[in-house]
Computed example of a mutant assay.
Amino acid sequence: MEFHDWIKWNIRYSGNVEVADWTEFFTAACWLIWKRRNVRIFEGRIISFQSISARVSAILQSMKKVSSHGRKLNWDGQQPRCGPNTWKPPPRNWFMLSVDGSFLPDSQRGGCGRVIRDFEGRFVSGFTLRPVGNDSLTTELWAILMVLKHAWDTGLRQIMVASDSLEAVILVKEGNINVHQYRVLVEEIRLMMQRQSNISLMHVSRDANHVADFLARKAPNNWPGFSVISSLRSLFLC
């Protein structure tokens, strides 16, 4: 069996194995082994395989918490930190649409990230987008617009949109855009919001927007164009 086929087989395998959730275990282990290799090459440090095994287990536990309770994803397998600025679920039968934008001045490229979770904190979907723009505010506005369009297209009618950009939230909700450079973009966001009878746009801390922030920072380099993320597992394949 070729190496590529072996990887695909393990990702899709669902037979009898001693480890529960084998697909998630395998993808997390591959990511950490790849990370171990980079640390050894670029930092000269050696991470033991026993440590990798323990971190895989911790990551899987964190994934389950993200899926069931909306907790912050623990990428490094370390003890998670809790506090008042963590993600909070929306009211019953509502959906939380967490968005974020990032911009890299050196490369002049931006990225948007979005993750949708229900009132029980269960992951619904996510996406990344590399929009046209030349600053962080543009990417934040694009992230808000695209998540509103997606919500409308998929029939989500009771939604809370959360952004960690206070500037973008204020501009959309009450900003004077008559001579603003992003007038057209803000007008389109406002029109999308007017379509929805039950919608809320609010500002949250970055700690409460961790997953969307992660996706936004990955988008400029790793995902050209528009990419849909259908499961938590696919986050590890970035």
Rank of each mutant, 00 (worst) to 15 (best):
F26W: 04
F26P: 03
T27Q: 11
A28T: 04
C30W: 14
C30Q: 06
C30P: 08
C30M: 13
W31A: 01
W31R: 02
L32C: 04
W34E: 01
K35I: 01
R36N: 07
R37F: 14
R37C: 06
R37P: 03
N38Q: 13
N38K: 04
N38P: 03
N38D: 09
V39C: 07
R40Q: 15
R40H: 09
R40N: 09
I41D: 13
I41F: 15
F42N: 10
F42V: 10
E43P: 03
E43A: 11
G44P: 07
G44K: 03
R45W: 08
I47W: 10
I47L: 13
S48F: 08
S48I: 03
I52C: 05
I52E: 01
I52G: 05
S53T: 07
R55T: 01
R55Y: 02
V56L: 00
S57A: 05
S57C: 06
S57N: 06
A58S: 06
I59V: 05
L60A: 05
L60K: 02
Q61E: 07
Q61N: 12
Q61G: 15
M63H: 04
K65W: 01
V66T: 02
V66K: 02
V66C: 00
S67Q: 14
S68E: 14
H69C: 01
H69N: 10
H69Y: 03
G70P: 03
R71H: 15
R71T: 08
L73I: 05
L73W: 01
N74K: 04
W75L: 11
D76H: 03
G77A: 07
G77D: 07
G77R: 02
G77N: 02
G77C: 05
Q78K: 09
Q79K: 13
Q79F: 07
R81Y: 04
G83L: 01
G83H: 12
G83P: 10
T86H: 10
T86E: 15
K88N: 14
K88L: 12
K88F: 06
K88H: 04
K88G: 04
K88R: 13
P89S: 14
P89C: 13
P90K: 01
P90Q: 09
P90N: 11
P91V: 12
P91W: 13
R92G: 02
R92N: 12
W94A: 06
M96H: 10
L97V: 08
L97K: 05
V99R: 00
V99F: 02
D100K: 00
D100L: 07
G101P: 06
G101Q: 11
S102T: 04
S102G: 09
F103D: 08
F103W: 12
L104P: 07
P105M: 00
D106C: 13
Q108M: 15
Q108W: 12
Q108P: 10
R109K: 15
G110Q: 02
G110T: 03
G111N: 00
G111D: 08
C112T: 13
C112F: 06
G113N: 05
I116A: 13
I116Q: 06
R117G: 07
R117C: 14
F119P: 02
E120R: 14
E120G: 11
E120Q: 12
E120L: 15
G121E: 09
G121R: 08
